[in-house]
Design a protein around this nucleic acid. Structure first.
Lengths: 226, 226
DNA sequence: GCACGCCGTGGTACTGAGTACCGTTAATTA
DNA sequence: TAATTAACGGTACTCAGTACCACGGCGTGC
């Protein structure tokens, strides 16, 4: 049973101390001491005290950037909503670590701001990607890109927060639903599927149960596509 | 010609030094020295070095909170879009100071993060206001509030950024247009009331995936119940 | 006039994050 | 085994931010 490496020991020492005495009450010296390493070693592994909590957010951002660059989707919004799923999955795979981080960021304003800033970097990336994809430098298109990026990120945040608070058992299903809602908010960004794209008009009483109407709806749409 | 007060001298000294040597290269001691006051006095007027650049954002946030609390609009989204106009106007009235700040925040990541964090506070305020106004604690309503707040803030950011870059001569007209676009994205955000039996008419392209449309359908039916 | 309290100010000393540099040791490779 | 490299530890420094104290102006009441 060999000792874990310095980085691992630092991480564990840091989270333990943050949990015991709080983030601001814990000094880097204390973290290094508990990890059994020198102060210099701490800053060699983590550029700052905050970086212990957000270790690989830069890496993930690069990953998302690559994903977007190599994505071949019919529309930019679909590509972005696909990429944002990756971000959510990353958090979920972290499991309890992500929840520990959430507990900290909920309490310490400094860390909350930091988290928000990193999320904003994703949003910026999405916005630029969409704007470039649209290839339309007008003001209206630029606004549209901004709204799309904001909506996608908001949907992500919504589901992530619910998962972090343990309010959902199936975050994957929820992100799917949230993303499809976002997609319907921007109908022009929908891929036009094939020749049959006639418009179907349906009228029904709102008191009725939607699920009971589904079969009829599907039939109506199939007919409208002819 | 009496000397301006210490606070004014500090502000001018700070911006001058930031402009000459950059933000990070300027120390608080240098600012205080150029202003002809002691270091202690600096921290008495501004709690931190960053606070010189963002002096009254807390005050503005309180102002917006009050505005929302006393607003009597037909829908939450209208009230919020009204409040966000106030924020934009505040920046515009600052004039060249806002542009100076923009030049700084564009260059210094630390300041950019700080700016983003403060904008996020508005967004959070809006989200909570909308959610409370809707009085519907379900997941779908919560997501809706999140999307609305994000859209309003995105629209604001879009117009503000254009104004800061001097890309628009009429920011007021643009914010009106952007807000009305946001409003059309969320048709009839009404508070929940008893079930009605009005007839809802929906038109959509049959090429779209029905399952992707379901959230929008459910929403339309719920709103049709008004 | 004087004593009192208040407020803005300046100075000193401290904590803690982050940086720069240097000497040492352990692992790798020739 | 000798040389090179990489990780480590220690010291000293800068700078933001905090705590505390001491001084001077300034009005008020006596």
């Amino acid at each position: 049973m060999s000792k874990p490496d310095a980085r691992t020991r630092l991480t564990e020492a840091a989270f333990a101390l943050f949990d015991e005495h709080g983030y601001e009450q814990t000094t880097v010296d204390e973290i290094a001491e508990r990890a059994g390493v020198g102060r210099t070693t701490f800053f060699r592994h983590y550029g700052s005290k905050e970086a212990v909590i957000f270790p690989d957010h830069d890496r993930l951002l690069d990953q998302i950037r690559d994903r977007l660059a190599t994505s071949s989707h019919s529309t930019a919004l679909v590509a972005v909503s696909d990429a944002v799923r990756l971000v959510l999955m990353h958090y979920i795979e972290e499991g309890s670590l992500a929840r520990q981080r959430y507990a900290l960021t909920s309490k310490v304003p400094l860390l909350r701001d930091r988290e928000i800033a990193s999320v904003a970097r994703y949003q910026r990336l999405f916005r630029e990607f969409i704007a470039e994809w649209m290839g339309d430098p007008t003001q209206a298109a630029s606004l549209r890109a901004e709204l799309m990026a904001a909506a996608v990120v908001a949907a992500h945040n919504h589901v992530l927060r619910r998962w972090l608070r343990d309010e959902t058992g199936d975050p994957v299903a929820e992100i799917e639903a949230a993303m499809s809602e976002v997609l319907t908010m921007f109908p022009a960004a929908q891929p036009r599927s094939g020749p049959g794209d006639g418009t179907t008009v349906i009228a029904f009483r709102s008191g009725q149960d939607l699920d009971a109407l589904l079969p009829a709806l599907r039939r109506a749409m199939a007919e409208g596509a002819q």
